[in-house]
Design a binder for these strands. Structure first.
Lengths: 360, 360
DNA sequence: TTGTAAGCGTTATCAA
DNA sequence: TTGATAACGCTTACAA
């Protein structure tokens, strides 16, 4: 049975009624501080004492109160990560990497979905401030001015802060403040690479299918990079924006407009993500349009489905899981050294499969 | 500029050096408790005082320390949810529902992925105990004995606890303890319904493709229900287990064994999930096997892709998002009333599309 | 409507 | 190796 501070089994007016350090100390016949020390630095406690304390903990069913510990020490063990959509497979693997990297450390991961809304991100950050997280992870480099202020404040107070899934070589913010550390890759470069790959195959009239989620700024960067590379090469490019709703249906629905635009001259298309691209491929299949003979398609994300369709979808494989792992490593290092996070650029890969080919 | 407690700008030996209630109170020329009261119950503070406090908060840049508040009040505002795989679309929507349901309340959601491992679940619960969460959400009704003890202890201490994604009418645990409240549906019944649907179409030789994730007990329940219903009808049934690895490939790889088993007599198959089922459909498409003429296929999950293939995949639509919403509602009600969570069974739906048909 | 006193359960600091 | 003391920042109970 548990020994509780309260006389009867009911919950006391204050506190939770569960055993505290005090209860354990009483049973082990030492003082609270010795028990606390045993929990934090067992080697500083005499073996016999440690044994008594161990027994007392088991007997009382004591559970350490992390809240109180954090208040007293001023250190938090909570790493907060703000992710647009935790259910999205692409972020799911990064989260998995973060979780794996943080496992067996003293830190816990607090995940908050922002639903691709910068306003929600700011609100979450504000709520988070009261929890005093040990470190902050946000997605992307776009934030509201308020959110940016919160992030900078946290950083200046010594909290490691990092932006993931992005790595921009663009100029720093207009206010001259240094950019936050980033762990990810340059989406603009991805867009350029996709375009250059298609241009090298002889395509001169291209298109990009943008995401329906206008606040997916990373997809926006890829689109921009694509467009700039095409224009730099003196070729034609048009941008289409996918509809909201079922993403496969949205992809399917793009085929018609793509075919009829520019008098049917478009021969290659970059797509914001693999799901849209798969929709496009499925529709091409259904209507008998030969891919890549009539239209080359490149997606983004390397979702498993793309490799199942015929032709297989050419795509870009982002370092999905590695972003999470690298973030965990960088955070732990920063926490340990009491330094800012050291950001890094991670490699992505253009995978040329059956859905792309030379003009003709 | 910020007013800090510390004289210089550096971090003090203890504390975080940020403004506290005390600093705000000094500026507003009241005592701490009045500021605290203003934050919790503004209507109990005189309008003029409130105004001064408001200004003082803005001036100092004060952020409430939730940790300290929780320690003092003995109440936590953290709802913890243990989910097998946050990146899985099926759980993603439930999480979204939970988030939506908890938004604009005083509670925060702490998400922890367990990776379908019961051991990890127990470890997470143990770590969580030190945080004193306000409520606990776990996935499914299967837990290690240790985890079950932690859940029961929490429940008895007044913490709302709920199992989601399951709703079993099976007998309670062998130790006679009452089952934990559940919000979800009966997977056994889903398996039975799928089998009965196929039996009603005249199929007499059936199969079930089980998940490669053996710790997905809910898929196991569906399999069991399927098998029992077939056997109860006096028909034949075989169970195949999918390979690990790419889930589409695993589904594809099942077609051969399914066709060759039982001298090629199997005419209908239930599948653990839609991804496997889509793999099966893609392979049938690739090998020219007519579906449903030669083989009827029913999946589970109603993933968007199933509706894109031809024929469209028949499936079961689980109340994905509704589970999250209902959980949030039930938790808030339980927290409010200081009662155990009221579980509930949610409806699912068998969706008959093109991949199933009568024998022949 | 505001204030005083006394914690909440832990840890940092320094002394023994 | 152990302990006494004083925080950490906030809230409850009760008094004025």
């Amino acid at each position: 049975m548990k020994e509780t501070t309260a006389e009867n089994g009911r919950r006391p007016r204050r506190g939770h009624g569960r055993p505290t350090l005090h209860d354990v100390a009483a049973v082990a016949q030492v003082t609270r501080i010795t028990v606390s020390r045993y929990l934090r630095e067992p080697h500083l406690v005499a073996p016999e004492t440690a044994e008594r304390i161990q027994a007392a903990i088991a007997q009382t069913g004591y559970v350490r109160n992390l809240q109180a510990g954090q208040l007293a020490s001023g250190r938090s063990r909570m790493v907060a990560a703000l992710i647009p959509n935790v259910g999205h497979s692409i972020f799911g693997e990064s989260i998995q990497g973060l979780v794996d990297g943080l496992r067996d450390t003293e830190y816990e991961l607090l995940l908050m979905p922002t639903g691709y809304s910068l306003e929600r991100e700011e609100a979450q950050l504000r709520a988070l401030a009261g929890w005093g997280p040990a470190a902050l992870v946000v997605t992307g480099r776009h934030h509201t001015p308020g959110a940016l202020r919160l992030l900078r404040d946290a950083q200046q107070a010594g909290t490691p802060v990092v932006e993931i899934w992005d790595c921009s070589h663009a100029a720093p913010a207009s206010d001259g403040a240094p950019a936050l550390p980033q762990i990810g890759f340059d989406h603009h470069a991805v867009g350029r690479a996709v375009a250059e790959h298609l241009l090298a195959q002889g395509h001169r009239s291209l298109a990009f299918v943008a995401s329906a989620v206008s606040e997916d700024y990373r997809a926006g960067d890829r689109c921009e990079g694509f467009v700039q590379a095409v224009q730099a090469a003196g070729a034609q490019v048009r941008v289409f924006r996918a509809n909201a709703g079922d993403v496969f249906d949205a992809g399917r629905a793009m085929l018609g407009p793509l075919r009829s635009a520019d008098h049917g001259r478009i021969t290659a298309v970059g797509v914001a993500n693999d799901q849209l691209a798969c929709g496009l491929l499925l529709e091409a299949q259904a209507t008998g349009l030969p891919v890549p003979q009539a239209l080359s398609v490149v997606g983004f994300g390397d979702f498993p489905l793309g490799n199942q369709l015929r032709p297989r979808l050419s795509t870009v494989r982002p370092p999905r899981e590695e972003i999470g792992r690298a973030t965990a490593r960088a955070l732990l290092a920063a926490l340990d050294a009491e330094e800012p996070v050291r950001g890094c650029e991670l490699p992505w890969q253009l995978i040329d499969r059956g859905s792309t080919g030379p003009v003709g």
